[in-house]
C-alpha cells in the first residue's frame, strides 16, 4: 500500500499507472452516473412538498459537498508538497483549483435554479449559498495567485501556503456566515440534505449519483494532472518516447 502510494509520487509512474486505472474508473463512473441520474430523474416519487423540483437536489447536494471536499483535498496535497517536496502533489493541487471552481459555480447555479420555485427568488442570502459563493472566491484567489507567478516553483509554494491559510479560515468563515444568517433572517428550514427524513428510494439514487460524481471528479483530476506532468517533464526521455509512440499510432490510423 505504502509502496503504491510512493510510486504515485513519481511523475512517470503516476502517468503509467493512471493509464491503467482510467478505463476502469471511466466505466464505473458512467454506470454509476447513468443509473443514478435516470433513477433520480424518472423513477423516484416526487417530493410531497416541492414536487418534481426537488430532483435538482440530486446534483446540487453532491456538487456543494464536493466544492468543500475539493478544497480540503487541495490543501492536503499542498501540505504534502510543502512538507515532502513531492512535485506530483503540487500538480494535483494545481489541477484541483479549476475543477473545484467549476464545481462550486455549478453548485451555485443549481442552488439558485432550485431557489426560484422554492423561495420565489433566484438568490437569497442563505447561509449555504453565501458560503458557497465565498468558496468560489477562495478558488478564484488561488487560480489568480498561481497565474501571477512566472516561476513554477514559487507559484506552487505560494499557492500551497495560501490554500493552507484558506483551509484554516474555512471553518471560521462558514461558522460566521451561519451565525450572520440566523441574525439576519432566521434559519431557512428548507434543507434537503437531512437524509434521515428521506426514504430509501430517494437516497439510494442519491448515493449512486454521489459516487458517480466523485468518479468524474477523479477522472478530471487525473487528466489535468497528467497534462501537467507532460508539460513539466517535457525534457525527460520517457515523454519523448511517449510522444513518438503517439506519432506511430496516429500514423497507423
Amino acid at each position: 500500500m505504502w509502496q503504491w502510494f510512493l510510486q504515485l509520487g513519481s511523475p512517470r509512474l503516476f502517468y503509467s499507472k493512471t493509464d491503467r486505472y482510467l478505463p476502469w474508473l471511466s466505466w464505473i463512473t458512467v454506470i454509476l452516473l447513468g443509473t443514478g441520474l435516470a433513477w433520480g430523474l424518472a423513477f423516484t416519487p416526487p417530493d410531497y412538498q416541492m414536487g418534481e423540483n426537488y430532483r435538482i437536489a440530486y446534483i446540487h447536494v453532491p456538487m456543494a459537498t464536493l466544492a468543500m471536499g475539493c478544497y480540503a483535498m487541495m490543501a492536503c496535497f499542498s501540505a504534502g508538497y510543502l512538507i515532502w517536496k513531492i512535485k506530483v502533489a503540487d500538480m494535483i493541487a494545481k489541477a484541483c483549483a479549476p475543477i473545484g471552481a467549476s464545481i462550486t459555480a455549478v453548485a451555485l447555479a443549481t442552488g439558485s435554479l432550485w431557489g426560484i420555485p422554492t423561495w420565489g427568488t433566484w438568490w437569497i442570502w442563505d447561509a449555504r449559498l453565501t458560503s458557497t459563493l465565498i468558496m468560489l472566491f477562495l478558488y478564484v484567489g488561488i487560480i489568480a495567485l498561481r497565474s501571477a507567478f512566472d516561476s513554477i516553483d514559487s507559484g506552487a509554494r505560494a499557492c500551497a501556503v495560501l490554500s493552507l491559510v484558506g483551509v484554516v479560515n474555512l471553518p471560521i468563515i462558514k461558522y460566521s456566515v451561519d451565525w450572520w444568517n440566523t441574525l439576519h433572517q432566521g434559519a431557512s428550514n428548507l434543507s434537503l440534505s437531512d437524509t434521515a427524513a428521506n426514504p430509501p428510494e430517494v437516497w439510494i439514487p442519491a448515493f449512486f449519483v454521489g459516487f458517480g460524481i466523485l468518479g468524474f471528479f477523479l477522472i478530471a483530476l487525473i487528466l489535468r494532472t497528467r497534462n501537467e506532468i507532460l508539460l513539466r517533464e517535457r525534457r525527460a526521455q520517457w515523454v519523448s518516447d511517449l510522444v513518438e509512440g503517439n506519432q506511430k499510432e496516429s500514423g497507423h490510423a
Binding site: L41, E52, I56, H60, A109, T110, L113, I116, P117
Partner: peptide, 12 residues
Amino acid sequence: MGGHAKYVWSSY
C-alpha cells in the same frame, strides 16, 4: 417535470 421543467432541465 410537473411545471418545473425550466429549473430542473437547466440545472441538469
